Simulated assay, not measured.
Amino acid sequence: MSIALCPGSFDPFTLGHRFVVERAAARFDEVVVTVVVNPNKQGMFTVDERIDLISSTCADLPNVRVDRWRGLLVDYMRNEGITTMVKGLRSTVDFEYEVPMAQMNRELADVETLFLWGDPKFAHVSSSLVKEVAKLGGDVEPFLPPDVFAAVMRKVNGELSV
């Protein structure tokens, strides 16, 4: 059985993320979307909220499950018996950033990283940019799954829960 890990902070989970997860799900028996916990970052969404949003967004992909991890991803992968990591790329800038991590993961735990090019129509979209534009009143609906868009709007408008 082939299993791949798709890690990220996913704050929020965009259509670009969904595109990469969908492509990975077509190539592996199972895909584990892992929300990586960074204690030094204050996100728009809690980890539990992100997991719920990703789960609802990917509910139509039966071979995708969502989990969380704090620490080295290679430790999680060892614990789960996963040897392939999937990372989405929007541009060569992403590639330059990701390659050293991929090489380190291979050295630490014999993890291979599979890079998938994202959908070109979302090449300019990042979670950080989506949050910034939404907070300033811009329309981010074209970049987010419907449930995530609704949750972002609730957060921007000061409502407490998603």
Rank of each mutant, 00 (worst) to 15 (best):
I3R: 15
A4Y: 00
A4E: 06
C6M: 15
P7Q: 08
P7T: 04
D11V: 04
P12V: 06
L15G: 00
R18C: 07
F19A: 14
F19M: 05
A24V: 10
A26S: 14
V37W: 03
N38Y: 07
G43P: 04
M44H: 07
M44R: 10
M44G: 07
T46L: 09
D48S: 14
D48M: 07
E49T: 11
R50F: 08
P62S: 12
N63W: 03
V64T: 08
R65V: 10
G71M: 09
L73D: 06
L73M: 15
E80F: 03
I82L: 09
M85F: 04
L89I: 04
L89K: 03
S91T: 13
T92M: 14
F95A: 10
M101H: 12
Q103V: 15
E112F: 06
G118N: 10
H124L: 11
S126T: 15
S127H: 02
S128T: 15
S128L: 05
S128M: 06
V130P: 00
V133H: 00
A134Y: 00
A134S: 05
L136S: 12
L136N: 12
D139F: 03
V140Y: 01
P142T: 02
P145I: 08
P145D: 05
D147W: 00
V152Q: 03
V152F: 02
V156E: 02
N157P: 00
G158W: 04
L160Y: 10
S161P: 02
